[in-house]
Every structure is written in C-alpha cells, then in structure tokens.
Design a protein around this nucleic acid. Structure first.
Lengths: 224, 224
DNA sequence: GATATTTATAAGGTTTGCCTTATAATACCT
DNA sequence: AGGTATTATAAGGCAAACCTTATAAATATC
C-alpha cells in the first residue's frame, strides 16, 4: 500500500470522484472538459486507467471508479483538503488561493504525510470552502444541502460549501463575499436564466446561474 | 517571476548546486551518478538547460550554474530545507525521513508558499540535518567545517551537518546517532581506507570512509 | 608520444500524455 | 424510423526525458 500513481492518473481519479455524486457514471466528455484535454485524450487515458483496474468504462454511458480507484481518489481529496486547511489556517494564504496550491501539494503527499498533517491540524472535518474531508478509510459524510440555482426568491440561506472548486471561481466568489458561513438572501431571479440577485451582509450581488450550481446552501428562513 | 520549471529541470539545478562548492565546475558524470541517469541523458539535459540559460557547459570540463540557474536552485533548496523543518518540528516525521518527503514537496512549492512557510517557521537558519537555509535572495552562509574523513584519531568534534543528503545515508546515520549537535570522538582509523572508529555518546561506531565525506564537523578538542 | 580513460556526439528506440482529423458506432429525439 | 448529436476508434504526430550501442574527440597517465 504505497503512494501515488503519477500526477495525471491522480488528476483523473480525483476529477471523476469530484464530478460524481454517489459514484454514478460520469461522461468522458465532462471529464475531458474539467481536465481541459480533448475527449480523444480522455478516452485514451480512461482505457489506461481501466487496465489498471481503477475505473470501469461503460461505452456510450460513462466511467465510474472501482473500489481501489475510489479509495485512492479519496486519499488525494483528503490530502488536498487538509493542505487547504493548513495553508489557510497556519500560513494565512488567502481563501481563494489555497485551492490551487493544494492542487500541487496533493500529488507530492503520501499516506503517512497525510495522516501526520491530519493530526497536526486536529482532525478537521471540512476544507475552508466547506467541503467534507474524507476520513482515512475513504468514508465521506455530506450534509443535506441544495444548490443555489434550485431555489426561489424570498429565501434566506446559509452558504455551506463551494463545489466543485476552481481557482477562477473561488477568486470571483471571494470578491462577492460568497463564503461558507455567510448568510445569503435571494432577492430576485431574472428571467431567461438570468442572474440571481442576492444580498450577503447588507450588500447586493448578482450571481450567474452557472456559478449558482457551485454554491451549496441550506435554507434557514423565508420572507413569507 | 513565477514558479517552477518542470521537476526534472529543478532536480538538475538543485543537484548541480548541491554538488558544487562555490559554483565550481561539476563533471556531467558526477551529476549523472547522483541523478541516477546515464551520462548520455545527463549531457542531453545539460544542453537543454544551456539553451534556457540556466547552466554553462564547458566541454570536457563540466557544468556550472548561471546567475538565474543558481538563484532558482537556491529557491528550490530553500523550500526543501524549510519543508524539512516543518515536517520534523511540527509533523513529527522522523529525522531520517523528512528529506525524501521534502524532495517531493519542493517541486510543488512556489515562492509565495515558501515565504509563507518561512514566516510560519520563524525564519529558521538550518535544516534538521544542519544545512543552512538559503535566504530569500539566494544568499547562503556556510560555517567553517571539515569533513570527518580528513581528521586524525584523538580528536573530539561536534557534528555540524550532513551533506549531501540521501534517504539511505540518513537512515544509516540515524541508526548510528550521527546527527548534528552530537559529539563524536575519533578513536582510531583503520588502514587501507578502512573504517573510522568513533564514539558518540559513550557508544562505539564504525563509519566507512565514503560516509565520512558526508559528515561535516568542527573540532572542539584533542586527547593530547 | 602512445595508450587508456573520460567525455561528447550520433543514431535509433521507448513511454506517457497529449494533439488533430476522419470515420464508425450508438443514443437521443421527434 | 430517420436524422442529429454524442461517443468511440483509428491513424498519424509531437515533446520531454529517458534508454542503449557505437564512434569520435579530448584529456590524463605512464
């Protein structure tokens, strides 16, 4: 039970796990999009991963992680989120930046290091962006949340997590006070997939529909 | 002024700097040996580095770092040694292991992260193996030391640093109490490049000549 | 100065992960 | 059922860093 596969392999495993809810099938096209490679390249790589028994590919349907693949993906995500905590809490690196730094560190991190880091941090349960940190065994507990794009005006919510994360997205959200723990009121939703007008801490913000799919919240009240 | 070159490039730069005292010429064969690649591959790579103005190659003589190359090497070594301090002091990873872990982390570390880490650690000056941590500008101060293999029996020394480091070497040294700060008495030196018999904290140890070249000490006393 | 050793170069190969373009197979929709 | 869109495969290529084997050039040694 040692370390890492190579970085590319790890990125695929991690991305598949990030994109799938409950280990459902992920379209290779979606995977390719997120990894910023061509679908041909992604297909090729998926074949390689399949040979290593890390994923299963159902042609024309999608990919999903095998047990080993899933376990390994969890380890990468675990180390990623622990690093994020360290970077944010101890090195004072800005909330929006820790993600991309952790993206690099995660591939240089073996199990022993991950566990040492976890102990140092006092076994945190969530990353700075609100996402749960898988446990050493790969188990992950997710709170019941909704994405902002599914809600109606008049509701007040607490921001719980941002997912999936990306450097650009986090930078944008940080500049609009969209961070876990903050309260948000849905003022209005413009028609034709227009922006969602919200208030966060007295300040109004307009959030696009696509961005809203990354914002997980729990409803805590209603105007009515 | 951004980040890293690729890992391979960084390994070459770092190794050249580690092997050279005072930026003197390093034989490509020595470089190849340390990097565990063929001399042909090392030569090839040196040409590539030369094109990027990171090294200068004098045929049949050796390589040396250019200003930029040297600066970059210093940054890698800086981050390496800072990581070692973090791993040893905060994560309680064993003295002999931190080197190889840091070897991976260093390539995932940019200048901002390095500086944040430096501040967190309180600007340490030496790694756990006694080697000086280059300053942000690349400046490095080395204490006046001798390697153990150059000394005569009857001398008492303080172990100052282990250099160059490698996982195997450190593991061996750790098991023989050869660590910076410890005192060492040279009991006897066997003929024909035989082992150096020493006493460290009441316990006798036999150290090979090659190993002795990695042990830097200062003489603090003599039997006579 | 001749020989042995070290160093450099040339030629051809491998692996990994990516690319593009083109075509074939399947799925989805009306 | 037919047409469009998606997905898969085939073919050919590229760059980086390695490899081996063979030969040539420079240096070191006797």
């Amino acid at each position: 039970m040692h370390e890492s596969f190579n970085e590319s392999t790890e990125m695929y495993l991690k991305t598949i796990r990030e994109l799938s809810i409950d280990n459902d099938l992920i379209a290779i096209s979606a995977l390719a999009r997120r990894l910023e490679v061509s679908t041909v390249s992604a297909t090729e790589m998926v074949h390689r991963l399949e040979e290593h028994k890390l994923v299963e590919h159902t042609p024309y349907k999608g990919v999903q992680l095998t047990g080993i693949g899933c376990q390994h993906a969890a380890e990468i995500i675990r180390s990623h989120r622990l690093w994020e905590r360290f970077l944010a809490d101890h090195l004072n690196i800005p909330w929006a930046r820790v993600h991309e730094v952790a993206c690099r560190l995660e591939h240089a991190t073996d199990t022993k290091l991950t566990e040492a880091l976890d102990a140092f941090l006092g076994h945190p349960t969530r990353c700075p962006h609100g996402n749960p940190i898988p446990q050493a065994g790969g188990v992950l507990k997710t709170a019941v949340t909704t994405t902002l794009n599914t809600l109606k005006p008049g509701l007040t919510c607490e921001i719980i997590r941002i997912h999936p994360e990306s450097a650009l997205l986090l930078e944008y959200l940080a500049s609009h006070d969209v961070k876990p723990g903050n309260q948000l009121h849905i003022d209005e939703i413009a028609p034709f997939n227009g922006p969602i007008m919200v208030t966060i801490g007295e300040k109004p913000h307009a959030l696009g529909q696509e961005i809203a799919t990354h914002i997980f919240v729990t409803v805590i009240g209603s105007d009515a």
